[in-house]
Nucleic acid binder design. Sequence first.
DNA 1: CTGAAAGCGCTTACAG
DNA 2: CTGAAAGCGCTTACAG
Lengths: 340, 340
Amino acid sequence: MAQKVKLSTIAETLGLSTATVSLALRDSPLVAEITRERIKEEARVSGYIYNRRAASLRTSKSGIVGVCVHDIMNPFYGEILKSVENELDRHRQTFVLCNHYDELSKQRAFLETMLQLGADGLIMSPAIGTPASDIRLAEDNDLPVTLIARTVDGSGVTSFRGDDTYGMSLVVDHLIAEGHRKIAMIGGTDLTSTGRDRELGYRQALERAGIDYRPDWRIQGPRSRHSGFDAAAEFLALPDRPDAVVCFSDLVALGLMYGLARAGLRPGIDIAVCGYDDIDEAAIAMPPLTTVSNGQSEVGQRAAGALLARLAGEPARESLELITPHLRIRRSSRLGGTGD
Amino acid sequence: MAQKVKLSTIAETLGLSTATVSLALRDSPLVAEITRERIKEEARVSGYIYNRRAASLRTSKSGIVGVCVHDIMNPFYGEILKSVENELDRHRQTFVLCNHYDELSKQRAFLETMLQLGADGLIMSPAIGTPASDIRLAEDNDLPVTLIARTVDGSGVTSFRGDDTYGMSLVVDHLIAEGHRKIAMIGGTDLTSTGRDRELGYRQALERAGIDYRPDWRIQGPRSRHSGFDAAAEFLALPDRPDAVVCFSDLVALGLMYGLARAGLRPGIDIAVCGYDDIDEAAIAMPPLTTVSNGQSEVGQRAAGALLARLAGEPARESLELITPHLRIRRSSRLGGTGD
DNA sequence: CTGAAAGCGCTTACAG
DNA sequence: CTGAAAGCGCTTACAG
């Protein structure tokens, strides 16, 4: 491009003012239909590129929404993001992604960048240890925030997530109904609301059934496929080994099943395994994985919707929107039974 | 924030000019050390937020690099992106992600957005059907492009990808060495360079071994775990069924293995299955998957490096940088054999 | 229905 | 070592 084409270039070529050109390109009815068409045609043929930085500097709207999660390669987040993306696309918002890998410094750098770029809003699954003040910093600088999957107390904003305590209790109830009494739980951490809530659901369900909680059957930590795989060895070495396992997530369960299979134990035959999230892979895994549908697409859609409402002027308020999870019974938990 | 703090606010407070403040905040030696410290301190306590839109409007540098791939939820791209992210992070570039899902319109919308935001550069794995002119449009508007994983002829820019033809021939050679003669290939499409090149490697390896290519043993299409799973039925119905399969990707292979196992066929025992890419999961899968390491992190790192060089002023040139793939032999391909 | 002018918040020569 | 002034490319009252 020899010479950059800008509004004023078009205005000069056509003998109009930049004001008219600006209005016409945004389809303002203030400009006569015929003038509008001439202007648009000229913009097209001259290869005009709208300069959003300039516009944004003037209007203080950027059309950018930031999205920050633990790791987009995790299908659980991926599925949420897909529905967020869908929703934002329809409102012509550009969507800027970031992984924080639970490093507060990464999350802060991203937040700072969004502030500097004048982002219109932020959707985040806060990193471990996020203080409420980080979220208020954004809000105080006109950057509305909506939380997903995890909660931060005192943030003053709306969070969307599944009802993890209830969901986990559904799984454990199911295993108990299948006749299991020795049920381990693998994965998750006390440091996130998700981890705490799912463990609570596990303990409550045991308690309701009159089964003692055994700390040695609670293996904390794993949150990925790989660490689930690694946990198999630890599980197999457990004293008085349980015959059923609930996992923090599907990813952990799928990794664990690989690990158990490698050790010669057949998931769904020798041992019951359940996951959490009902990611796409759960239904086709071998064996098909019993899990809890955690409403990823609903979380994404509602979170995006709530953020758009904030952009449209709705005030912030602290609230927790719980999506009701559903049990998906498949073969991995039905020893000797049938199922898909 | 009652009142937005800007450069001029700081300048007034301190009785300095905005020029001095601007220079000081960017650590210019033109400003006296002591003045610089006063300014930075004031910026800190007043909660100043640097306005990148304004700066970028002035300098026409935005600090943004766009990255556009088929689907970031695909671990193959995820692994590339992780290393791109690493590299860009070190140069304090903000990294804006986009999935095009092989829809040209989505890719174009993203390209347009990057142009409007004045992005400094673009890394992309071009959508099916991307014309060279789309890439030249970016280049002509001062938006340097580097391609990954796929190539576009006549683009005039550098591409980084694995040597797919050679890589696929390694797998097929290995199966032949294991004694297989009836080898199917599942997945991939003629519409991408990756699909074409991997199929070519398959056919060349067969030819070298004097084995006829059988079109009915070439199942095109699958490129995801789910479609790999679905392809199992088609494969099982094949006339004169092969006893070995090479897949377009690990994801396809992993899905296929789920499908075969569900049908009662044991991958790695009754049938040999190989993947491509060597994603993290391949090594822990059950059975562990024989595959080809495709150098994802090298692709990402070198592509990011090349783009940074372009940003630093290096001219564009059309070239193809092939990363040499390596065979990873695991249990899925060694019927009756041993391995990890 | 269209135009002249100010201003968004920075950076960059240029002057002193 | 610091300041005054112009300008990046838009949009928005305001006037006509």
